[in-house]
Design a binder for these strands. Structure first.
Length: 879
RNA sequence: GGGGCUAUAGCUCAGUGGGAGAGCGCUUGACUCACAUUCAAGAGGCCACUGGUUCGAAACCAGUUAGCCCCACCA
């Protein structure tokens, strides 16, 4: 064959093409939401990554899913906005900036609020660029002109408006309650930011003597150090053991404080001794009990995580030191009854792992009950739909049991709480504009609340703040509610739920139609990827090594909605191999293209052409349907199977004969079908593998500037040839059968051998038409047809779809081997027949099963019977 | 304490009531003019267990077992 020049190397090198195309797309503005101005709007707001971090595999999965959906919709002609952005991540970012300061020997207090915020902004700018680069290297087709940041001007305006509105409605309030204090992060955190982990601990049984000298009550505690702040001992009102003790007082040892014995239903009679020490200032339950019984709140633990001045001689000690010393003192006083081992849940900060200390302090809260109700209804009514649906239940259960949300944080990096306090009259002022004078007393001595808001407060507004709210922008009008939110299940409470109630409250409509939930990317042993385990993988490393398309492919293929996936390097090789396969199929096609005009010759579609075009149409429909259902992995699998197995391994091989030896018209037809099919495969594949598909599409004959804006093939308007499809599949089965016989008989791969076929006239016509394929794909030296009893006797035989296949190999085949092979085949056929016969003898099957199913089973029976007869007859010859 | 997920080939996983699938690994053969990042052939499954629904269940329902996860104020 003459060597034709192609610009393509034999092995695909993603590095050569990816950056080039991303730059091209950006330059042409294809990511802009204005690119299909007349299309129905489609919008995804990107879950904003923390601006301080760098992207991990979870982000890569999230971005890939969003990009697949976005590119799919854009190719459908939708007016598509994928809005990118980042999150200021209050605690995390502040911690990093403080860390950096510490290296210079400075603290934020030393440099002051303003200087600190400057540093934080510097930090933000530096890391932001990295995240954008990572997203771009993965091919994310977001509209960068609409990129947002949770702390930018617009988002800040949305936060201010929301806060003031909720404040005015009485849905935001300030109060002294017990909240979760992290002594490491030096701030309160909300309930869901506390992780409850099982930890090995002890249960100390301590004796509290009654004040009247009548013995003592024994209380059990896991945290002896808090007893210094005890305000009571509580028992269950129906607990017989303590019936006559309620109303007495006990002397709190060490502190020598007299505290009452009270009755409260909170107590569990089964646990410990049934008597509980009550520390209102350091335990949420005790706090509630304290309120019910008007107990004093005695704080003995400070914000620094040490015992404070109320702890007497233990003041200044860490909690653990105090615990040890205190237990020792009880022991020496004879007041330690016993110690048990106990595994119990300890609340720890989800950021830094420090044990959380419940502390009382004035904080800001969002009243949740009135906000939760419409948010629950939005999902119940189907206004917002979770995919998979089971997550709706997770959401609803949580929302129904929600408690008020503590939104103030003792940080500097974030949205400062828009409330001022008059230093003269104490008035609390919350307004849209910064106040200058106190509206009550006219004083100018106003001080703003020093705290900032929980980062999630601004994230909760993301679906509309990014579209321009509180301004009435065109963008907001067009794209709100957004189409779908794509995120992992671990963030449903933190973020999804809060966006839904915020959307209902501020916009009156839920922020998205669908919530597409995916799982987490775990390591190859199924462990969560984390910094402490050191098992995290940088997506960029993979992009550099295998290319972005392979990374995206690996994250998509075989991934089902809502389920976790394991990340394995070996799978990347599979992905890379597939890219290389597509590359080489294109290379082959380009090498065999001639410069004919499209209509130089009339098309003469062969059976193979009709078959592949039919299969292509079916795959287009399947892929589209699956993408519509968010079955992204299934869509890709269908494309992958067709592209590799049917197109590359079968059709390309079948086209070769015409390409190399065909008449000009035959050659032209093969080229045409090859080209159309390949181009359609590239279009189908584009949302999953944007780079390689653009590179190849541009080299093939095409219309338009970019594959990004080609119409996504959904099979509509494509001609189906169902009968030809069946015929071709029969031929393929015959070829497979011949290959199988040859392998079983140890006929060397390259050795040509004669093949004899016996079948009816119709099948013979089909097989004769396909003779070139049999010669090439089945290594047949020559093809001959027999009728009646003229079949060769010294031959290996198989039977497929009414066709007897003989491999006459006199002197070459091993008789015994062939006999045992045939016997095995007969046995399995008999088995199949028995099963079918049983089914077809079943009256209720015949009566109730759909006619087409019954018909199918009957046809199968006929087929198997024919096969059995044929093989039995063959076996006779050897005996 | 409540809720959820998972259980399919040696491994990782798809499977949407009607002939058990893929990739990797394994065995055998092949440097065939797009590709050895390839091709061909093969071995390998009581679809966790027990019931139920159904003409028909890997799939739907109930229970059991094992593993994982989430929520929850039991000292």
């Amino acid at each position: 064959m003459e060597e034709k020049n192609t610009p393509l190397a034999t092995v695909y090198q993603p590095q050569d093409v990816e950056q080039k195309w991303y730059a091209y797309w950006l330059e042409k503005g294809y990511f802009s939401c204005d690119i299909n101005p007349d299309g129905e709007p489609f919008c995804i707001v990107m879950p904003p990554p923390n601006v301080t971090g760098q992207l991990h595999m979870g982000h890569a999965l999230d971005a890939t899913m969003q990009d697949v959906l976005t590119r799919f919709r854009r190719m459908q002609g939708r007016r598509t906005l994928w809005l990118p952005g980042t999150d200021h991540a209050g605690i995390a970012t502040q911690a990093k900036v403080e860390e950096a300061l510490a290296k210079e020997g400075l603290s934020r207090q030393e440099i002051g609020r303003e200087a600190f915020l400057e540093k934080a902004w510097d930090w933000k700018h530096r890391y932001h660029g990295r995240i954008v680069k990572q997203l771009q290297m993965m091919g994310s087709s977001c509209d960068w002109d609409h990129e947002r940041f949770t702390l930018d001007e617009g988002c800040s305006a949305a936060v201010r408006e929301t806060f003031v509105e909720l404040y005015e409605k009485g849905l935001i309030y300030r109060g002294s309650y017990i909240t979760n204090w992290c002594s490491h992060c030096q701030t309160t955190i909300s309930d869901i930011e506390v992780e409850h982990n099982q930890r090995a601990g002890h249960l100390w049984y301590l004796r509290y003597p009654y004040a009247d000298g009548s013995g003592y009550v024994v209380v059990a505690t896991t945290r002896p150090e808090t007893l210094l702040g005890d305000a009571a001992v509580a028992v269950h009102p129906e607990d017989e053991r303590y019936r006559d003790k309620v109303g007495k007082t006990v002397i709190l040892p060490v502190m020598q404080r007299e505290i009452p014995v009270i009755a409260d239903e909170y107590c569990d009679m089964e646990f410990g001794t049934g008597a509980v020490k009550i520390t209102p200032a350091h335990d949420p339950n005790d706090f509630e009990i304290g309120l019910r019984h008007h107990l004093p709140q005695i704080t003995v633990i400070g914000k620094d995580g040490r015992m404070n001045e109320n702890a007497g001689k233990y003041a200044g000690m860490t909690l653990l030191e105090c615990r040890e010393k205190l237990v020792e003192e009880f022991r020496s006083l004879g007041l330690l009854e016993r110690v048990e081992d106990l595994e119990h849940a300890v609340g720890e900060c989800y950021r830094c792992g420090t044990p959380i200390e419940p502390l009382i302090s004035p904080q800001w809260f969002v009243k949740m009950a009135p906000l939760a109700a419409p948010a629950i209804e939005a999902v119940r009514s189907g206004e917002t739909r979770f995919v998979p649906a089971r997550f709706a239940r997770t959401y609803t259960n949580w929302m129904e049991n929600i408690r008020d949300w503590c939104i103030s944080r003792q940080l500097w990096w974030g949205h400062r709480i828009p409330v001022w306090y008059c230093q003269d009259c104490g008035e609390q002022i919350c307004t849209r504009e910064d106040p200058v004078v106190c509206p009550k007393c006219g004083s100018k001595r106003l001080e703003q609340d020093p705290d900032v808001l929980d980062t999630w407060f601004s994230s909760a507004l993301w679906p509309f703040s990014t579209l321009g709210w509180p301004e009435k922008t065109k963008l907001l009008e067009e794209f709100y509610p957004t189409s779908v939110l794509v995120t992992a299940y671990d963030i449903i409470f933190f973020w999804v739920a809060r966006m839904i109630f915020s959307g209902m409250e501020q916009m009156g409509r839920a922020p998205f139609h669908d919530v597409f939930i995916h799982g987490l990317v775990r390591d190859d042993q199924g462990r969560k990827m984390s910094k402490s385990l050191g098992n995290g993988i940088d997506p960029l490393e993979i992009v550099n090594q295998y290319g972005a398309d392979s990374l995206r492919f690996t994250l998509t293929m075989g991934n089902s909605p809502g389920n976790d996936m394991r990340f394995q390097w070996e799978r990347l090789e599979g992905a890379r191999n597939f890219m290389n396969k597509i590359w080489n199929a294109s290379r082959f096609t380009l090498m065999n293209l001639s410069d004919d005009q499209p209509d130089a010759y009339p098309l003469q579609l062969t059976l193979a052409d009709q078959w592949v075009l039919t299969r292509l149409a079916r795959v287009c429909a399947e892929a589209s349907a699956n993408l519509e259902k968010y079955e992204v992995g299934e869509a890709l699998r269908a494309i992958y199977d067709f592209a590799w197995d049917e197109f590359c391994d079968w059709y390309v091989e079948m086209a070769k004969h015409r390409l190399y030896q065909g008449s000009p018209a035959e050659k032209h037809t093969a080229q045409h079908v090859l080209c159309v099919t390949l181009r359609t495969i590239l279009e189908l594949l584009h949302p999953f593998a944007p780079f390689i598909t653009e590179e190849l599409w541009q080299q093939l004959p095409h219309q338009g500037e970019t594959i990004m804006l080609a119409r996504y093939p959904d099979g509509s308007g494509m001609t189906l040839y169902p009968e030809e499809e069946q015929r071709m599949q029969m031929v393929m089965e015959v070829i497979r059968s011949i290959r199988n016989l040859r392998a079983e008989m140890n006929v060397p791969m390259g050795k040509k051998a004669p093949v004899v076929l016996a079948c009816d006239a119709a099948a013979q016509a089909v097989l004769q038409e396909c003779e070139p394929y049999l010669l090439r794909l089945a290594q047949a030296a020559e093809l001959s047809f027999v009728t009646g009893g003229a079949a060769p006797d010294k031959a290996a035989k198989a039977h497929v779809r009414g066709v007897d296949i003989y491999l006459p190999l006199a002197g070459l085949i091993d008789l015994d081997k062939e006999i045992s092979r045939i016997e095995k085949e007969i046995a399995s056929t008999e088995n199949e027949l028995k099963r079918l016969a049983g089914k077809l003898a079943n009256a209720s099957f015949l009566a109730k099963a759909p006619a087409e199913v019954v018909e199918k089973e009957r046809a199968k029976e006929t087929e198997y019977q024919a096969k059995l007869d044929s093989l039995r007859k063959h076996l006779q010859l050897f005996r």
